[in-house]
């Protein structure tokens, strides 16, 4: 119902504004055309690869850094300044500075993306580590469980709500920020296509890629990540989950 009203308002707006705003059908036709030409999937795949690499690196290093900060006062003091700096830096500045330092290449884009999402992952995992129930760890020690058993069976499951929550948010954020990064300094990917059509004031082209990214994010976040969340939290009383950050 809510999706239907969204599309209805869009269609009405397109009708009222005339030539300036293409309607849903026109946009869909443009998407189909781009698909047939092969450009849609080509650029989508490039963008997806960039997001995946940045997201996986940020998530794994974010878990390690966050856990280290949560467990050790010294590491926390040491990295606190870095955390504040990376949390407060304007995102767009990150991309510009990264391109200027490293050149207009994928490395610069991916590093800027990592720095964009890493600090929020670190903060979340650090909070999660501080909330760990020491009584359960005592239980594991009383039964002489090994370090790896304690980590996998006792500590990690307690971090999972924090990890999955921040992973959903970070994936959504990097999915949106990658477009900006590509628009600023790459010659491939969805962001580049949008800047390309922008130069021709081709609104249908811009909307076609924009809508495709939105739909894909909704599918990945609600479908994939939601399913993962439900699977990991089977042991809890069932609760409804919804996100897209």
């Amino acid at each position: 119902m809510s999706y239907a009203s969204l599309i209805a308002v869009w269609a009405y707006g397109a009708h009222a504004l005339g030539a300036i705003l293409p309607g849903p059908l026109e946009t869909l036709r443009f998407i189909a055309r781009e698909y047939e030409r092969g450009t849609l999937l080509f650029h989508l795949w490039i963008t997806t690869q960039r997001v995946l690499v940045a997201f996986l690196v940020a998530l794994s290093s974010g878990i390690a850094i966050g856990a280290a900060m949560g467990l050790s006062r010294r590491v926390d003091d040491l990295l606190q300044g870095w955390l504040i700096a990376t949390l407060t830096i304007p995102r767009i500045l990150l991309f510009v500075v990264s391109y200027l330092l490293l050149g207009l290449n994928d490395r610069a884009l991916i590093i800027a993306l990592i720095v964009t999402v890493l600090p929020t992952i670190v903060v979340s995992v650090r909070e999660g580590t501080r909330a760990i129930d020491g009584k359960l760890i005592d239980m594991a020690h009383a039964f002489r469980r090994s370090r790896s058993q304690v980590w996998w069976k006792v500590v990690l499951p307690q971090l999972m709500p924090f990890i999955i929550g921040t992973a959903r948010g970070s994936l959504a954020l990097s999915w949106k920020m990658v477009v900006l990064g590509e628009l600023l300094g790459r010659t491939s990917g969805v962001g580049y296509q949008i800047s390309f059509y922008f130069q021709f004031f081709n609104m249908a082209g811009i909307l076609a890629y924009g809508v495709t990214m939105m739909v894909l994010l909704a599918i990945i976040d609600l479908g994939l990540m939601g399913a993962l969340q439900r699977r990991v939290f089977r042991w809890r009383a069932p609760v409804k989950v919804g996100s897209v950050g």
Binding site: K135, L136, D138, M139, A142, F143, R144, K153, V154, P157
Partner: peptide
């Protein structure tokens, strides 16, 4: 050695 706590401390 085994241990039983005041609470079950099940995972």
């Amino acid at each position: 050695s085994g241990y039983m706590f005041q609470e079950s401390r099940l995972l």
